[in-house]
């Protein structure tokens, strides 16, 4: 089901949106020498207490309790650990959530990064009131997409204006596609 890293990103970002985050930071760093991809995620949502932090990592928690955070976290944790990588989630009430997951690049169970540009596009356009800072780095080359810069340039024109959407699609196509292929 979560067959792409970018679907996992979509999912943890959806949790952050539910947790009323206003600023979400997402970095993917590919280190070919160490053969490791690291995903770093940070939001400024309502956060969780220690008990919740434990529970959201438990696959048997949540779907029936009415809590808003679901199976997504255990799935991401499972993917990271299956590939020989690591997973950590830290949070405090009122202080948002930080997630770091790493994946071994040469592991046969490593899912592809997948449609990262679609994930970025729908998050940015589908949540115009939230700021996103994306970073995708392969060794020393990096691509940064920060909506605070974009919104500054737009000066009041919404990011979900049809022409802006079209620009973002083309911009991501041009600047991100090559790095992922």
């Amino acid at each position: 089901m979560m067959d792409e890293i970018s679907s996992h990103i979509m999912d943890i970002a959806a949790n952050a949106i539910t947790a009323k985050a206003k600023h979400i930071e997402i970095s993917i760093m590919v280190d070919t020498k160490k053969s490791l991809t690291t995903l770093f995620f940070k939001d400024d949502g309502i956060g969780m207490n220690d008990e919740m932090v434990k529970k959201v990592q438990d696959p048997f928690f949540s779907t029936k309790t009415g809590k808003k955070v679901g199976l997504g976290i255990p799935l991401l944790k499972g993917t990271a650990e299956t590939t020989g990588g690591t997973f950590s989630l830290t949070s405090e009430l009122g202080k948002g959530v930080e997630i770091q997951a790493s994946f071994r690049l040469n592991h046969p169970d490593l899912p592809p990064i997948g449609k990262l540009k679609d994930t970025i596009l729908v998050l940015v356009v589908g949540n115009p009131e939230i700021d996103f800072a994306f970073r995708y780095a392969v060794d020393k080359s990096e691509f940064i997409f920060d909506t605070t810069i974009i919104k500054g340039l737009l000066d009041g024109v919404p990011v979900n204006h049809p022409e802006v959407v079209n620009f973002i699609m083309n911009y991501l196509d041009e600047h991100l596609q090559n790095q992922i292929d």
């Binding site: 737009l154 000066d155 024109v157 022409e163």
Partner: peptide, 13 residues
């Protein structure tokens, strides 16, 4: 294609 192009879109939009 660069972010400066957003300014043109802004004026139009």
């Amino acid at each position: 294609m660069n972010l400066e192009e957003l300014k043109k879109i802004r004026e139009k939009a």
